[in-house]
Design a protein around this nucleic acid. Structure first.
Lengths: 210, 210
DNA sequence: TGCCCATTGTCCAATATAGGACAGTCCCTG
DNA sequence: CAGGGACTGTCCTATATTGGACAATGGGCA
């Protein structure tokens, strides 16, 4: 596996490293877009707010993911807010530098293309999910994805600290609705929770059948 | 502007050209994913159906757009159905060839990265729209985008032949609902239509204020 | 310990949406 | 010309969703 981090460093990029505490803002919607970020450790949440102040979570990213890449396509301002969700380390790469190295270095462009392809697939899946599934199914799917369902084939996984409010913002509904379905799932034995959420494989049945 | 088509041909790729009539299928959801397509002329619609047969339109593409690129990320089967929406010419590039040339040729990888970035931005916008806008706003936005609002700054644009059924699939709702809002927009003077749809700038007011 | 704050559980009324049914219109084609 | 097919216009009921309010819980901190 190609090591993006070592590569970026050896190419003279990413010498700038930033650290953020949980809940700290990396950049805000509306800021000038000048850098591409690469997550070394931790996690980042991308959110968008509309005119009325309503918030939507567009993506949750982890180590190995890029963000802020919109500037490479000519976006002059950030369309989302990036917030660290735990102690996070990012490499900061200036836009023009990134463009130059993407052009010159095959390894980086290959890796970046692979990243953009997978990211695109994920966002498209989210869109399709949104286009034809009910709130209940979307919640179930989101929980399963957060639990990295299928990664190890474990019958049960744990999601650390995601509030119902945030789940609501992720699937585009209200906390009331999330609460309603979480209790339903709990009654049916699909999930358990106190601080963490335990997701059982049986939750799949919600997503799968009609 | 870099000419992808000439480039692909001179690189020995895209010698295979396919033509499709309107409504003809380029590939179907579930087919083995083996080629990347590049649209020379015409237009293509990407749709996904769920278990219940409900259909969703994921994207409308035109000349200069790629599709079927999921195979480059390791997708073994097509997750969407691609249908020509008018007389369409596409270059067909075999997956491994595309991967090889993307690695070797800066011009192509630059262009492809630019394409993936812009496509990603668009899908993300669609997702955000879906996450926090009502059916009415989503319909208004979709009509404005179809009319390429702002492209020439014309106060009015024409959309050729898009049925209410298809609009419903694009914004994830029912035809009944689309019909309801189209009539509302018509009453308010935001649109006119008989076969084509005429979209007036004033439709923007629906998207803009709460 | 006691207060503050973030979160969850619950309830309710007002709306939005789905989904089906059916008539009317227009165009194409036999 | 008649019939069929693809759309649009309309109506109606059942359901899903919003949005607000308020109590209960539980942890962190002065």
């Amino acid at each position: 596996m190609f090591d993006v981090q070592l590569f970026l460093e050896s190419a003279g990029l990413g010498r700038k490293v930033d650290k953020f505490r949980a809940k700290q803002t990396v950049f805000s919607q509306g800021d000038p877009a000048t850098n591409v970020m690469y997550i070394q450790e931790g996690g980042v949440k991308l959110t968008v707010v509309n005119e009325t102040g309503k918030e939507a979570v567009v993506a949750l990213l982890g180590p190995g993911d890029f963000f802020g890449e919109g500037c490479l396509a000519g976006q002059s301002i950030c369309i989302a807010t990036a917030t660290a969700i735990s102690l996070t380390t990012v490499l900061v790469i200036e836009k023009n530098e990134m463009t130059r190295v993407l052009h010159e270095q095959h390894e980086l462009s290959d890796r970046f293309i692979a990243y953009m392809l997978s990211r695109n697939i994920r966002v498209e899946e989210d869109l399709v999910d949104q286009l034809f599934n009910s709130t209940e199914k979307r919640l179930a799917r989101t929980l399963l994805l957060l639990a990295r369902y299928g990664a190890q084939g474990h019958p049960q996984s744990v999601i650390p600290k995601v509030s119902q409010e945030m789940l609501a913002e992720m699937i585009g509904t209200t906390r009331t609705r999330v609460n309603f379905f979480m209790n339903k799932f709990k009654k049916l034995g699909f999930v358990r929770y106190n601080g963490e959420i335990h997701v059982n494989n049986s939750l799949l049945s919600v997503v799968l059948h009609d």
